[in-house]
Amino acid sequence: MPTTMADRTLVALACLAGGLGVAASAAAAHIPGADSLKTAAQFLLFHAPAILALAGLAAVGATHAVATRIAAFALVLGLALFSGDLAIRALAQRPLFPMAAPSGGILLMLGWASAAVAAFLPVRR
């Protein structure tokens, strides 16, 4: 089954999340009291492999491809909002925008729920 541009984009974004997670972890180690940056790094590092897995599952047809990709993109957007807000707060002492972190957290939860639903949807062959 050929890989779609959506799958390749998800893989690239997951790799970006992993790299940013490593960078944020390193920065947090050198900034006293950067607990929110540590949290942002953890979320990036925990979700990067999940996004890779979802892209892989969609690409090989193991789950409903469209639903799985929607779940993965929800995780990406949720990470950008949640971790982005926490990182900006730690590094620039200002929010990304009001309610960015809670909105991102809700998107992350919806992404995980969507992934669970996608696992049970019939796969089209």
Rank of each mutant, 00 (worst) to 15 (best):
S83H: 03
V76K: 00
A100P: 11
A90L: 08
I106G: 08
F82L: 15
P95T: 00
P95W: 00
M99I: 10
G84D: 11
L77Q: 04
A113P: 11
L79C: 13
V76H: 03
L79N: 11
M99V: 08
A115S: 14
A101T: 12
G78Y: 03
L91M: 14
L91C: 14
R94D: 07
A87S: 12
P98M: 07
Q93T: 13
L79A: 09
I88D: 04
L75D: 08
G111A: 06
P102T: 10
W112K: 05
L75F: 10
F97N: 05
G104Q: 02
R94W: 06
A80P: 15
D85I: 02
A101G: 10
M109Y: 00
L91H: 06
F97K: 00
A113F: 07
W112N: 07
P98G: 06
L86E: 06
V117L: 14
A87H: 02
A115I: 14
R94L: 11
W112C: 13
V117S: 03
G84N: 04
V117G: 07
G105D: 05
Q93F: 08
R94M: 15
A113T: 09
A90Q: 07
G105C: 08
A80R: 01
W112S: 10
R89V: 15
L107R: 02
L110S: 10
I88Y: 03
A101E: 06
L79T: 14
P102E: 06
A115H: 05
W112F: 15
A87M: 08
L108N: 06
G111M: 09
L79K: 00
L77I: 15
W112Y: 06
R89M: 11
W112G: 13
G111E: 09
A113M: 11
P98R: 00
L81H: 03
A72Y: 09
A115M: 13
V117E: 02
M109K: 00
A80M: 12
A90M: 11
A92M: 12
L86C: 09
L75N: 04
L81I: 10
A101H: 02
A116I: 15
V117M: 07
A116L: 15
P95D: 00
A100V: 13
M99Y: 03
A92W: 07
I88Q: 04
G84C: 09
L81M: 12
S114R: 02
F97W: 12
G111F: 08
F97Q: 04
M109A: 13
